[in-house]
Amino acid sequence: MTVDLEAVAAAHSGRVDREGLDPAIVVPRETWRQLAQALSEAGVWFSDLTCVDRGETVEVVAQVCASASEQITLKTVLPNRDLTVDSLWPVWPGMDWLEREAYDMFGVSFVGHPDLTRILMFDGFEGYPLRKSFLLETEEKAS
């Protein structure tokens, strides 16, 4: 099964980025869940969800598979001052822990997630460890 990336991206006011090693669909966050819903109905299953801290923005990156060997990256870019995006949990229930981990490590709030709590760090931990602004002890000493 193959997915027409251009058509899917255009239908969700996004674009296709083919510069990387795998094709990526970049959409605004408003259509993030609709994109996943449309792909899910086309038989696409998910593999991974994570975030990349780019300083001013945080990218939410999901890896999905259209067929056993065809891999697509989904991306949406969130500004640092407002890290909220729709949860993909209603589309793929297995996103539960992946989104909890992204929240735990990057502070991204997934709207519509049933149980958005810390998962790897303990409750009451302050800060988001994988953000670039979170310094290790050795870096704090150096600066």
Binding site: G20, L21, D22, S47, D48, T50, V52, V61, Q63, Q71
Partner: peptide, 20 residues
């Protein structure tokens, strides 16, 4: 510069490395 995601059949299932 770039990013890569590789899927691998580990003993427990699909192991993925996403390197930026």
């Amino acid at each position: 510069e770039g990013e890569v995601y590789v899927r691998h059949e580990s003993t427990r299932g699909e192991l993925g490395f996403h390197i930026v």
